[in-house]
């Protein structure tokens, strides 16, 4: 079986901003070949895979395929203007570079406007997409136009690294969730309940994919597998507590949802019974697809299991390999005991 590390590397290096998930969908589907009882791609582009259970209940797990990115809104002489897709910050773009989704790939570097030192410093301080431009290093407008157009999408240009039990990459949000679910499906044999895995599109823009998958599948419980902030760094936010290597984070609340109490209690119970390290999570910002599952149709009991991640939405998101393995373990046991 393919090593977890290789799966994470493969998934994180694919460029798939919201609305441009074709390639990552293909990669996920290929990696599940032979490990599922069925799959389909729905009207909006979610990939839904399943394994049939012995008993008559349905559990849905969700990880979103899309990552944050940019889209070209203006092509100047030889410079571009871009706007964010999802929660992309202009700060992280400085010094990082952008990889545009064209074949062969085009790379861009980001500069800041400023016609005086004062103006430049002011723009740096109040950085916005109106103050930055992208230089794709073309020597003429003609050359540029053939490569990039208005409406071309781009993502961070950064690579996967593995170092001492850590994975580092762009798009760990939420390709690490995708990798967890793929690994989980590969290891899952003859599940007690039917398991659906939704690899959802456009979470970063507005929970688009999850909203329709929930309507479609009507599961008995839905669990989003996503990243959460890890604050075990120097002078990090004092109002949160999640850290690397302490196991999957069972979310109690974030800005978009409060997890179903029953599901949370069950997750804790399962983790304790099987000695799986875990931590509780309260995130004071952000949200996950659980918010969409929770309020679709007549309501689905929903929760989130998170992989603690440093520097979320940056080009170098850091996770712990152990946390990833323990998340897979937790989900596997949960499936057997979810409704006991």
């Amino acid at each position: 079986m393919e090593k977890l590390r290789d799966l994470v590397k493969k998934f994180t290096e694919v460029a798939g901003p919201s609305g441009r998930e074709e390639e990552i969908r293909e990669a996920i589907l290929r990696s599940l070949d032979g490990y599922v009882d069925g799959y389909r791609v729905d009207k909006v582009g979610n990939l839904i895979v399943w394994k049939n259970g012995r008993e008559n209940k349905k559990i849905l797990f969700d990880a979103h395929m899309d990552e944050i990115g940019v889209v070209v809104t203006h092509v100047d002489e030889v410079f571009l203007r871009v706007e964010p897709i999802g929660g992309m910050s202009p700060r992280y773009l400085l010094g990082t570079g952008i990889r545009f989704l064209v074949d062969p790939p085009v790379y861009g570097v980001v500069g800041v406007e400023g016609e005086s030192i004062e103006e430049y410093n002011k723009n740096l301080k109040e950085l916005s997409f109106d103050k930055i431009y992208v230089d794709v290093c073309a020597s003429s407008k003609e050359e540029l136009k053939e490569r990039i157009k208005i409406g071309t999408f781009g993502v961070y240009d950064s690579r996967f690294r593995e170092s001492a039990g850590r994975y580092v990459s762009k798009a760990m949000d939420d390709r690490i969730g995708c990798a967890v679910l793929v690994q989980f499906m590969r290891e899952l044999v003859d599940p007690r309940y039917t398991v659906y895995c939704v690899f959802s599109m456009q979470e970063e823009t507005g929970l688009v994919g999850a909203s329709v998958a929930a309507y479609d599948l009507q599961p008995d419980v839905a669990i989003a597998v996503d990243v959460t902030a890890s604050v075990d760094t120097p002078k990090a936010n004092k109002r949160m507590a999640m850290k690397l290597d302490a196991g999957p984070a069972i979310k109690v609340m974030d800005r978009a949802s409060i997890s179903d109490r029953g599901v949370v209690d069950k997750l804790i119970e399962v983790a304790e019974r099987h000695g799986i390290p875990h931590q509780m999570e309260v995130l004071i910002l952000g949200g996950t697809n659980a918010a969409a599952y929770q309020r679709t149709r007549s309501g689905i009991p929903s929760a989130t299991v998170s992989i603690p991640t440093r520097y979320v939405h940056s080009p170098h998101e850091v996770v712990s390999e152990n946390d990833v393995l323990n998340t897979v373990k937790l989900l596997k046991h949960y499936v057997e005991e979810a409704f006991d």
């Binding site: 009207k43 809104t73 409406g151 994919g209 309507y215």
Partner: peptide
């Protein structure tokens, strides 16, 4: 092309309601 991404339309709702479209 519409060259700013601010502002939404009913397309957002259509895409994410019911079975999605």
């Amino acid at each position: 092309y519409k060259r700013r991404t601010a502002g939404g339309t009913d397309a957002f709702r259509f895409a994410r309601s019911a079975y999605g479209v």
